[in-house]
């Protein structure tokens, strides 16, 4: 009985020890971040080092551009391969191989993704392809987009498998072609879950910094061009946090708070949608 109580106590202690850093991190983010947030933070670009003021408008816009490019790559490829896995490939060798490769891709460190995007887009200089050969938002977006694919793919597959077979039969029984019934019935029925998966992937890459270090590079000025180096929120947080200026540290905390609020919102939304059940009202 003594061991029993001791083990219970240890398990409770472990849980507290795990929750503690979370409380710590959020606490500091709120305390340090909130005090440096103001209107200027959202509408101004950074000022030169050592000066006071300025904002991170360029980083927020840059993150938007990068995530837009990433979604353009990651979402269609991910959903497409998820549809393949759930609708066409069930039990086939190819499907098992794709599923497996997606898991492998999911485990590839983000820094390696950055090296790849660098080698693909920043490194080669091709005469008639002006978007190659230099640091650019495109390179960063490609790195992030590739990272989105496995998450989107696997969650799309899982959600499609949850759609009852009877719904597919109903559509096929009406003489609806397979592609139409897949897109308009199966995918549409599973769409809350699929959107959830996309949000998860989005939240994951939104905070990624490592693959952007030598692809998007960062930018002190306002830029939304796909072809130029671009600022990103996590990149800016990193640059500010390792700078020697107190004011930039303050900006870093503010940026971190904005970033975490966005991510927690996305994750909570996901939690809310999945807990309500993907296929609500389906008896």
């Amino acid at each position: 009985m003594v061991t029993d109580h001791a083990v219970t106590a240890l398990a409770v202690l472990a849980t507290i020890l795990v929750i503690l850093p979370l409380a710590f991190i959020f606490g500091y983010l709120l305390i340090k971040g909130a005090s440096s947030l103001n209107l200027n933070f959202f509408i101004k670009v950074p000022v030169p080092e050592g000066e006071l003021g300025g904002g991170m408008a360029n980083a927020i816009a840059g993150s938007g551009v990068l995530l837009g490019i990433a979604s353009l790559i990651g979402v269609p490829l991910g959903i497409g391969s998820g549809i393949f896995l759930a609708e066409f490939g069930r039990g086939t060798r190819l499907a098992n191989a794709v599923r497996f490769t997606a898991d492998v891709l999911n485990g590839v460190p983000s820094i390696v993704m950055g090296v790849t995007a660098y080698a693909l887009i920043v490194f080669p200089r091709v005469r008639f392809l002006p978007f190659l050969g230099h640091f650019s938002a495109l390179a960063g977006g490609v790195a992030l987009g590739i990272m989105m694919i496995p998450t989107v793919c696997r969650s799309t597959e899982e959600m499609l498998l949850m759609v009852p077979h009877s719904i597919r039969e109903a559509a096929l029984g009406l003489g609806v072609p397979n592609w139409r019934s897949t897109l308009s019935i199966t995918v549409k029925t599973a769409s809350p879950g699929i959107i959830t998966g996309c949000m998860l992937a989005f939240a994951r890459v939104a905070g990624e910094t490592a693959p952007l270090l030598f692809t998007a590079l960062g930018n002190e000025f306002w830029s939304t061009s796909v072809n130029d180096p671009i600022a990103a929120l996590p990149l800016q947080i990193f640059n500010y946090s390792i700078s020697p200026y107190e004011d930039q540290h303050r900006m870093a905390w503010g940026g971190a708070l904005v970033l975490i609020v966005l991510i927690v919102l996305a994750v909570s939304l996901v939690r809310f949608v999945t807990s309500r059940g993907v296929l609500k009202g389906n008896s």
Partner: peptide
């Protein structure tokens, strides 16, 4: 509680870094 532990996984590594550094 399980939501909170999973929330730990959603925090980007840059924020862990920032917190760890300061």
């Amino acid at each position: 509680l399980s939501f909170l532990t999973e929330l730990l996984a959603a925090i980007p590594s840059i924020i862990y870094g920032l917190w760890a550094l300061f």
